[in-house]
Amino acid sequence: MHELSVCQALVAQVEQIAINHGALKVESVKLRIGPLSGVELSLLEHAYPFASAGTLVEGSRLEIERAPLKLNCEACGLESEAKPNLLTCRMCGSCLTRVVSGEELTLMSVELITA
C-alpha cells in the first residue's frame, strides 16, 4: 500500500542526482531490496511508471536485485538463510539471531544519459 510513497521518494532522489550531474535523462535505476524491507517488489514495479511520469526519470529501466535473507546465530555462530517469519537458528533453534542481510531497501546506482 505504501509502495507508491516509497516510489515517489525514490524518483525524487534519482531526479536530484540527475540534476546534480546535469543529465538529460535517466537510463536505469538499480535497487537492492530484501524480504524484510517491508516493500513488495511487484507493487513497486507497478508504481514506478506512475511515480516517474513527467520527471527526468520517466521511461527509465528499473532493475531490482533481491537481497537474500541471512541470519547469524549468536548462540552457535551458524550463518544461515531463513524465511521472513522464521528467524530462529535452524541449527540450534535459538532466537538469539541477528539479521545480517534481508532488510535492505537501497538505491545502489543510477545510469544517466549525459549528452
Partner: peptide, 15 residues
C-alpha cells in the same frame, strides 16, 4: 554519453 553513478543510499533517505 552515459554516466553511471553509485549511490548506496536508503530509498527513504529523505524521510
Amino acid at each position: 554519453g552515459m554516466t553511471a553513478v553509485s549511490v548506496l543510499e536508503n530509498l527513504l533517505a529523505r524521510n
